[in-house]
Amino acid sequence: MSCTLGEVKNRADLIIYWGGNPAECHPRHFTKYSLMPKGKFVPNGRKDRTMVLVDIRETPSVKAADLFLQVRPGKDFEVVTALRALIKNQRVDKDRLVETGLTFEQLQDFAGILKKARFGVLFFGMGLSMTRGKHMNSASVLTLVAELNAFTKFVAMPMRGHGNVTGSDMVIRWTTGYPFGVNLCRGYPRFNPGEFSTVDLLLRGDNDAALILGADPGATMPQPAIDHLARIPTIVLDPKVTHTSQLARVHITTAATGISAPGTAYRMDEVPLPLRPPLKSPYPTDEEIVRRIRQAVQGKPPWLPNSNGKRRLV
């Protein structure tokens, strides 16, 4: 029920951004993939497309929208549920819609727009997936999109955040079968978000060391998780000084991938793109450092912890 951004460019005549602010957070999205480009079935580009923005505040992305629907904070799930009923011509209680911040007429118009599209795409952002309800909100829009396929072609795609988070998900997925929160302690992968996911591990203090690659949890995670990273030996590989590198025991400066180091980045539609660095760097790449750490670790004799806390060689 998803597609590549190339299909969006060539086919989509209805673009919905829900809980995202691409004008600021994905500045090339409009111009390269979704709104502006001329495509095979949308030859006039922007003129052939309709853009609907759903958000809780008026962001700079509103200027690019044909229709802006301002939802009350935390009411996205209710709006999606009402839309699911409206597209199937089921009864919706107008009075109960008041709490969503939208009127019955607005939602009915929106439902009409959804059904009239030839090829609709719903991009959903962190405003939906990281507010109260989290995965339930994401599941509700995915269900809405699935149900819209009874009327027209409709797809959904998450607006991924930082550079190459999709790449991390993809690689862990094709190596272990799971996208994140994978525990390999028993020698085989086990998946359990809430137990093996990073924030939960750090909060419980389960791990006694950390290797951080290309991320800055010291500027994004809850404070108790950051405090645990500062307590334990943390190693950071990063081209720059970050909040995490400052609390780490070891910071290894690396070449910047895509700028001075080659590699592969996965676009948010899961298309892998080779990176051709235009510059050279005096620093090693992340890959080289991890390979050398791995070689050094493999050279050490294996050990198990004793009951007295000392190491016992096996």
Partner: peptide, 19 residues
């Protein structure tokens, strides 16, 4: 904002990051 954020993830792995 890290100091204001709670650590609970409700079993999702993601702490409440907005609202």
């Amino acid at each position: 904002t890290c100091r204001l954020m709670g650590g609970g993830t409700d079993g999702t792995g993601m702490p409440l990051s907005k609202g």
